[in-house]
């Protein structure tokens, strides 16, 4: 295992980039989709208790099934490759962000909502003008956690054929090429560490500025 074999480093870095792209795209799309889902899961803005119950059930379902299983399902559905991995991350992100976004929306100060209700604003306008701005710090922090989680998760997804650097890791291990596996593990560690550090710095900045 030591010293690490860096002969395939360019290919490994390319796969690493693909892994990060999967994580980034999956998290971004997942966050966008989580917004309306979270609104439907809130006490104040869900159009009906049944809708709220079903939406919360859907979010719990997305969260209950591990991302690896989602990846297996999507590999069967759309074939091998990063698209399956991205879909798995989207679903996993919805499970994570859908819940926390809904809680953040329920926790925001009610005053601005009341002010807009009093002037006859529509429900959509109230959500966009008073609820989302109020919940934004918590939502950004949750989104960054989600990206960190997706980056770690996307590494493993490759092992089941869902694209990214996991494929390289699996091949290296299958061929008992531990020196190359060490290189792969090291670059994964650097990527995860970098995403966590940037995420922590951004979160600290958002929370310290109060908002």
């Amino acid at each position: 295992m030591f010293p690490p074999d860096i002969s395939r480093l360019p290919v490994i870095l390319l796969r690493l980039l693909e892994t990060f792209q999967m994580a980034l795209a999956g998290t971004f799309i997942g966050i966008i989709l989580s917004l309306p889902i979270a609104v439907l899961a809130t006490r104040d803005f869900s159009p009906h208790p049944v809708v709220r119950f079903l939406t919360k059930g859907l979010v719990s379902f997305c969260r209950t099934i591990p991302d690896l299983i989602w990846a297996l399902i999507f590999v069967v559905a759309v074939g091998l490759g990063p698209f399956a991995g991205t879909l798995a991350i989207i679903v996993d992100t919805i499970g994570f962000c859908g819940r926390f976004f809904a809680e953040a929306m329920e926790d925001v100060e009610k005053g601005p909502q009341e002010a807009l209700t009093a002037l006859g604003a529509s429900r959509t306008d109230i959500i966009a003008s008073a609820v989302v701005p109020g919940a934004m710090p918590a939502m950004i922090a949750t989104g960054l956690f989600s990206l960190e989680k997706a980056t770690r998760g996307s590494v493993v997804l490759g092992i089941v054929g869902a694209g990214g650097i996991g494929v390289e890791l699996q091949v290296a291990l299958d061929l008992f090429n531990y020196a190359q596996a060490a290189t792969i593990i090291f670059v994964i560690f650097v990527l995860v560490l970098a995403v966590e550090q940037v995420g922590s710095a951004l979160r600290a900045r958002i929370l310290v500025s109060g908002k």
Binding site: E109, G111, P112, E114, A115, S129, A130, P133, G134, M136, K211
Partner: peptide, 8 residues
């Protein structure tokens, strides 16, 4: 209390 959206 003014009830403004504080972040806007």
């Amino acid at each position: 209390k003014h009830n403004l959206s504080s972040r806007l």
